[in-house]
């Protein structure tokens, strides 16, 4: 058993990258993160007067692949939690839109208490719908997706766990995670709602992948089940 420490604990032990010329700007930016910040989970404030509470509290996480983040868990940063519509806008409006992000980066918007990891208790029996987007669409589609989630447009009870936008070299990928991969009525309803809120053409190929399969092949977006 090995304990992987977070970045503050790793500071002194971080592998030295001498000899590697950091021409990639995303590496430089990653290095700029202030190591003394508190990147542990902080609960959302209780909504004050005049705020519109959400059905669930949510947390925003950010991850970016870099040579020094050897595991996904290490790259995952808690950004903020929110409990109301206003608190959501407060955080969202002060974050770079996914379409303007550089490199191999992801935003994760998950219900408070659920870590955006396959192994989390809420996720381990679940899976996700995947939508691959051409470059240029990510910011708009991500906003439509999370507004639908926050506003409880999916109508599948407690099934939704969270949403992810992954900025990659060739394309950008949206994913919506739910608790029970085997619940076909739920996954079908989520798929139909996704098509509606994202204004996807009727013939869009939708891909689903269970987290059990992701754990087996250790990939997020390969070997998916395709539905037309």
């Amino acid at each position: 058993m090995r304990v992987v420490k977070g970045r503050t604990g790793n500071k002194a032990k971080r592998p030295h990258v001498a000899g590697v010329k950091m021409t990639d700007s995303r590496l430089k930016i990653e290095d700029d993160i202030d190591e003394d910040q508190d990147d542990t989970f902080r609960p959302a404030p209780t909504p004050g007067p005049g705020e519109h509470p959400l059905q669930f509290n949510y947390s925003i996480w950010f991850s970016r692949r870099s040579p020094k983040n050897t595991t996904y868990d290490q790259s995952l940063k808690f950004v903020a939690s929110f409990a109301s519509v206003e608190q959501f806008w407060s955080a969202y409006s002060h974050m770079t839109h996914p379409g303007d992000m550089m490199g191999h980066s992801d935003y994760h918007l998950f219900k408070e208490g659920i870590r955006p990891m396959w192994e989390d208790d809420a996720n381990k029996m679940g899976g996700k719908w995947i939508i691959r987007l051409k470059k240029g669409l990510a910011s708009r589609c991500w906003e439509n997706l999370i507004l639908a989630m926050l506003g409880e447009q999916f109508m599948v009870g407690e099934e939704i766990c969270g949403a992810v936008v992954s900025v990659r070299f060739q394309d950008d990928i949206l994913a919506l995670w739910n608790r029970t991969a085997s619940d076909q009525a739920t996954t079908t309803r989520i798929r139909d709602t996704l098509k509606r809120v994202l204004h996807l053409p009727a013939n869009t190929v939708m891909e689903y992948k269970t987290h059990t399969d992701s754990l087996k092949d250790n990939t997020s977006f390969w070997n998916t089940d395709k539905f037309i």
């Binding site: 993160i33 910040q37 990147d39 940063k77 808690f78 974050m95 770079t96 992000m101």
Partner: peptide
């Protein structure tokens, strides 16, 4: 909010 240069 966590301060991430280029993000927040």
């Amino acid at each position: 909010m966590l301060e991430i240069p280029g993000i927040t």
